[in-house]
């Protein structure tokens, strides 16, 4: 069995934490790595978007937004009926699983580039579009009625959180600059894999440090955290096939469908649904779904889709 070199760093960080020999990474460095990945993905997507903007892309974008709204509707009944979660907790967690993880997307990109599988280069646009609808659907599912008191704060948190802002901002800069932004690529392009490896080293440590919480929340959360990515990935791959995307595009949309947010959505939900158990959702997305996708899911989606497509 061969493991991807970037994913190996995730495993390394997790194992170091599990044997109580954690690798201490300065908090500022971790935040810098996150910032780098968001800007790199957004910028490259924006440059590609400048040369691929079309009416077909508009329809694809609308379909992707609808997909982002559908995923929480799939997750919510499972969490309510089988997990017995309260309406607010189920809605909050459904929003996490409807939104996407930039880190998971970055791992899939790295795998595609390492395997020389081509993909639609403007995919960063879809990542930005998938961040938001799930939050709105999650709030609707929770029937959150705050009397409009913190609505402004919620909207601000949804659209202006650091993840969405950096991704959309760099996407726009790349789009407006076009080939003029190429001079930034030696930094944001060449260093991408190395930065991702360092980022995953820290993510492995963080994910492993939360494993104890799984005992508190029961085994249902672990099962859901594995089953939901498979459902989301299947729906994502089917949608990509309907939209006529390339093999790489199918793998990326499957990965996005199978991923769960642990940065943007928790920030928005903590403001919009203060009564929801945020720790439950973060533990599931970070300690179950993220490792599952990095170590098992992405290689599986890639192998299966490559096998099924001509």
């Amino acid at each position: 069995m061969q493991i991807d070199v970037v994913a190996a760093f995730f495993l390394f960080g997790a194992l170091a934490q599990l044997v109580k020999a954690p690798i201490r990474m300065p908090k500022g460095l971790y935040q810098s790595l996150t910032l780098f990945l968001l800007v790199a993905i957004g910028l490259k997507g924006g440059i590609a978007l400048a040369s691929h903007a079309s009416l077909a892309l508009l329809w694809q974008s609308l379909a992707v937004i609808a997909f982002g709204a559908l995923l929480p509707l799939v997750a919510f009944p499972l969490l309510r009926w089988f997990g017995g979660l309260s309406r607010v907790d189920a809605a909050s967690m459904a929003a996490h699983y409807g939104s996407v993880s930039i880190a998971t997307f970055a791992v899939a990109l790295a795998l595609l580039e390492a395997s020389n599988i081509s993909y639609e280069p403007y995919f960063a646009l879809f990542v930005a579009l998938l961040e938001i609808p799930a939050i709105a659907v999650g709030l609707w599912l929770a029937r959150a009625d705050n009397g409009g008191r913190n609505r402004g704060e919620v909207v601000r948190e949804i659209f202006l959180n650091q993840g969405v802002l950096l991704l959309v901002g760099s996407l726009l800069i790349g789009f407006l600059a076009g080939s003029g932004a190429d001079k930034l690529l030696p930094f944001f392009g060449t260093l991408f894999h190395g930065v991702l490896a360092l980022f995953l080293l820290e993510m492995g440590r963080v994910a492993a440090s939360r494993i104890g919480s799984l005992r508190q929340y029961g085994s249902f959360i672990s099962c859901f955290g594995v089953l939901m990515p498979l459902l989301g990935a299947t729906l994502g791959a089917l949608l990509a096939a309907l939209l006529g995307l390339s093999t790489g595009g199918m793998i990326l949309l499957a990965t996005l469908g199978g991923s769960a947010s642990y940065i943007a959505v928790p920030a928005a939900m903590s403001v919009a649904l203060p009564g929801a158990n945020q720790s439950l959702s973060i533990t599931a997305s970070l300690s179950v779904t993220f490792p599952f996708n990095v170590l098992v899911g992405i290689p599986l989606y890639s192998a299966l889709i490559s096998h099924l497509t001509p």
Partner: peptide, 23 residues
């Protein structure tokens, strides 16, 4: 079908142990 299925089997085993152990 000659595809990587060991990952899913391993995850199934982990979940079975976790579910049984926690109960």
């Amino acid at each position: 079908n000659g595809l990587p299925g060991w990952g899913l089997i391993g995850v199934a085993a982990l979940l079975a142990v976790g579910s049984g152990g926690l109960r």
